[in-house]
Design a protein around this nucleic acid. Structure first.
Length: 226
DNA sequence: AATTGTGTCAACCGCTAGACG
DNA sequence: TCGTCTAGCGGTTGACACAAT
């Protein structure tokens, strides 16, 4: 029988107090990250190691960039999500100062809704007749943040919508119609041409290729999407 | 002013991969 | 090779803030 990660009876849960934050910061400054299991006791915290790790990574780390996402960050998230799916840690790795949790939350609360309002299925980045869709294709063309800036057209269902969503054939073609400035071409990056039908296997392939070709860091985003 | 609905985000939970003995 | 342990990941929850009624 496996031991729980911590003795839950003796641990605090819920929001962190400033004192707890300070203890964690002080401890990590002195001893560095790592060995999360023993850290709470050593730091004098009544928290489980997991909780400490999460608090540090998502909130206390000094290199975190707090605040609103920039347009280019939004663009990048959308593009990487199309490529990798819900691999938040990988996506966050391409956004310096952002955490997987932050990216995930931002996707779920902002970007997902924006895509839906554009008539784009956020799960596969295809135009979808199940979602409201703007009438004017030019409006759709602004699906990335530069065009998403709260100017998403009101949901309008137009005649013949169903024709636009083809299950057969290239879904990338659909994607280009939906997100023309979403440049997923491998020409720039040597990344395999992503298909929006991307299977888990293909996503993993893309992911490993990304990992091999681009070490995480600010420059990689430039390399990726020019 | 009170109540209800909705959105956001920090934190938790359960699972898995990989390291190690 | 197998079992155990830990770090890390993604999904989900719950508290809080704010808007709408």
């Amino acid at each position: 029988m496996r031991k729980p990660c911590c003795d839950k009876q003796d641990t605090n849960k819920g929001a962190w107090s400033k004192q707890e934050d300070q203890k964690l910061i002080d401890y990590i400054r002195k001893h560095g990250e790592g060995c999360w299991r023993t850290l709470p006791q050593a730091a004098g915290l009544l928290r489980c190691g997991k909780s400490c790790r999460l608090r540090w990574i998502n909130y206390l780390r000094p290199d975190l960039k707090r605040g609103n996402f920039a347009e280019d960050e939004e663009d990048l998230i959308i593009k990487l999500h199309a490529l990798l799916g819900n691999r938040w840690s990988l996506i966050a790795g391409r956004l310096p100062g952002r955490t997987d949790n932050e990216v995930k939350n931002y996707w779920n609360s902002h970007l997902r809704r924006k895509l839906i309002n554009m008539g784009i299925d956020p799960n596969n980045h295809r135009l979808s007749h199940n979602f409201p869709r703007p009438r004017d294709p030019c409006t759709v063309a602004t699906a990335t943040s530069s065009g998403l800036n709260n100017h998403a057209s009101p949901p309008v269902k137009s005649v013949g919508d169903n024709d636009q969503t083809s299950d057969a054939g290239s879904c990338l073609d659909d994607n280009r119609r939906a997100l023309p400035d979403l440049n997923l071409d491998v020409a720039i990056t040597n990344i395999p041409q992503p298909s929006l039908d991307t299977t888990e296997e293909e996503k993993k392939h893309n992911e490993s290729k990304l990992s091999r070709e681009f070490e995480p860091g600010p420059s990689s985003t430039l390399l990726l999407f020019g």
